[in-house]
Amino acid sequence: MTSTALLLSGRTMKRFLRTPPLIIIAFVFPVVLMFTILPLYGGLIEDDYIQRLAPLIVLSTATFGMAPSAAGLYADFRAGIFNRLRTMPISAASTVAGRIVGEVLRIVAVAVVAIAVAHIPGFRFTAGPAGVLGFFCVVAVFGAMCTSVSLLVALTGPDEDTVQSALGTPATLAFFLSSGFIPVTAFPGWIQPVVRVNPLSTASEALIGLTGGGPVAAPLLQTLAWAVGLGGLCALLSVRAYRRRAR
């Protein structure tokens, strides 16, 4: 199963690396987003806003990547690849795992680049090598969760357009209503509970903690709970949906 998953994820990576517009969007988008949000909200909020912003940018690669990754699956439906795989003795679980691993590799690669660039306006890791390692692990776990969600929605959704919208809109909402964007206390009181439980907030706080800017344990546990709960559930249901899906 692992070798199959790796083969499949290798293919996902190759496709990604051979589609220049995809690469540009993937790597340029976060950097542009970072540099344009920075002067605006940096001016509105606090001095070392980049410590808050960089983690959010990295995580939003995963959330905003959900719609394109669903589009990739639909491209496979259209190309018939999906059907060919289904006639081969390959387990549904390894196919799903292959998809997830492929997307996570992409997300982490983009995260490395974005974080490197974030050093220019002053982003720093101050919690040692363990913090750095933990940082990218959280990014990977969060990315796996997002990919599972998008996979499930794509496999069970009615058509590509609806699926893309159904993934893009919540991603945008989650982006706004997260404490990665502005601190929880800057939100109106009534919405603060929502902001606090938003997985993008918990993951952002975990990442901020791992760069040495706050508590680690609580947000990390909350993020893991999200990843195992939502991500795990979606992955399991995706395996089922994959077996059932007939096109």
Binding site: L44, F176, I182, A186
Partner: peptide
């Protein structure tokens, strides 16, 4: 977007 920015920017 309207709701998002309304919530995020209102106080600030």
């Amino acid at each position: 977007f309207f709701a998002g920015f309304a919530i995020v920017l209102d106080r600030l």
